[in-house]
């Protein structure tokens, strides 16, 4: 009996080495572990063994069975792995075939820049106010200290829809509307569309501005520059500096033009800054006392600064757009470049 088991062991090893599929694996089970297999045969032959040897022999047969089962299991796992590998090979694809996707849309560069600018100021505690695009004379001019005979009111620059109602020429009327509603401290941005009746290579009859207004006690020209310094560093580059120079707006006094050091050449002079090292980006100043008075704010107690930024101007500088017309043409090949 023992001799037979030894022979079966050798036979089993030989069979195992040739298993290469589910079918030959199943044949192995039939041969050794099936109802008519070698193990069952051995069990039947146990009857012929001497009674006192039976427990020992039974143990040997069992050990053989456990080993066969164990070898079967091992082999089954190996076959499983082989089959999975074959399937994976069959299922392999050309990963460079084109993707299936819904292309994401893009925000207009004006929106992107506007949001970026707003975000800088939101962090400083600003609110956003959007006033009407069609305004009255009072808000657009008179209460902003633009006297009746000022050249800026001329029909040349302003679109009128009636004698007293016009398309706002700047976002500054937002200052008046905010100061009518709120009392200091005020920190507000007024972004929006504005309209001027001129159109040429560098002007569009409609463009976008963002007004900023701060009114509180003890606001100075130094604060205006400090805030704009932070703004341009975030919008352009951390190395960019600002420069103030005198200017004139009827609703601020003193009025300043704000230049930034050229971020293209670092101030050495290049085509972008017309070899001056500086780029004009916005105007501002200390809110005129008459404007505060016109809104019921006592200029003896409060002071403020205001600034106005051309959003197109910033977008053009930031993205290197050299023609303002591109911003209203809305060519998809242009628009798709602005992934924010």
């Amino acid at each position: 009996m023992e001799q037979r088991i030894r022979a079966l062991r050798a036979q089993m090893e030989e069979r195992l080495s040739r298993i290469d599929s589910r079918e030959s694996l199943a044949a192995f089970w039939q041969e050794f572990l099936g109802k008519k297999g070698s193990v069952a045969d051995l069990m039947k032959g146990l009857g012929t063994v001497a009674r006192e040897d039976r427990p020992a022999m039974g143990k040997v047969i069992n050990e053989f069975k456990v080993m066969a089962e164990q070898r079967y299991q091992e082999c089954s796992e190996r076959i499983g792995q082989l089959e999975m590998a074959a399937r994976n090979r069959r299922e392999e694809i050309d990963i460079t075939l084109p993707a299936k996707k819904r292309e994401m849309g893009t925000l207009h560069p004006i929106t992107i820049v506007k949001n970026e600018m707003i975000n800088v100021f939101l962090g400083m505690g600003f609110e956003v106010f959007e006033g009407p695009e069609i305004e009255d004379d009072e808000h657009n001019f008179t209460r902003l200290n633009v006297p009746k005979d000022h050249p800026a009111r001329d029909m040349q620059d302003t679109f009128y829809v009636s004698e007293d109602i016009l398309l706002r020429t700047h976002t500054s009327p937002g200052q008046i509307r905010v100061m009518d509603m709120e009392k200091p401290p005020i920190k507000v941005l007024v972004p929006g569309r504005v309209f001027r009746s001129d159109s040429d290579a560098t002007h569009s009859p409609m463009f976008h501005q963002m007004e900023g207004l701060v009114v509180d006690k003890g606001i100075t020209l130094c604060d205006l520059q400090g805030m704009l310094d932070k703004f341009v560093k975030q919008i352009f580059d951390a190395d960019v500096r600002t420069r103030l120079r005198p200017s004139y707006f009827p609703f601020t006094e003193p009025s300043v033009e704000v230049d930034v050091s050229c971020f293209e050449c670092g101030g050495k002079g290049c085509g972008l800054c017309k070899h001056t090292g500086w780029i004009e980006v916005l105007g501002g100043g200390i809110v005129h006392q008459n404007v505060l008075r016109n809104c019921g704010i006592d200029p003896e107690v409060y002071s403020g600064f205001a600034f106005g930024i051309g959003i197109e101007r910033i977008a053009m500088l930031k993205y290197g757009i050299n023609n303002i017309g591109l911003l209203t043409e809305n060519d998809l090949r242009f628009l798709k470049q602005f992934k924010d």
Binding site: G125, F126, E127, P185, V214, I219, C222
Partner: peptide
């Protein structure tokens, strides 16, 4: 103007700010 020293609202009060729900 080069004498103007940038400061950051050293006298002003802190304000809430932020966009409104409609915005």
């Amino acid at each position: 103007y080069e004498h103007v020293v940038p400061t950051f609202l050293k006298n002003a009060m802190v304000t809430g700010g932020g966009k409104k729900p409609a915005q």
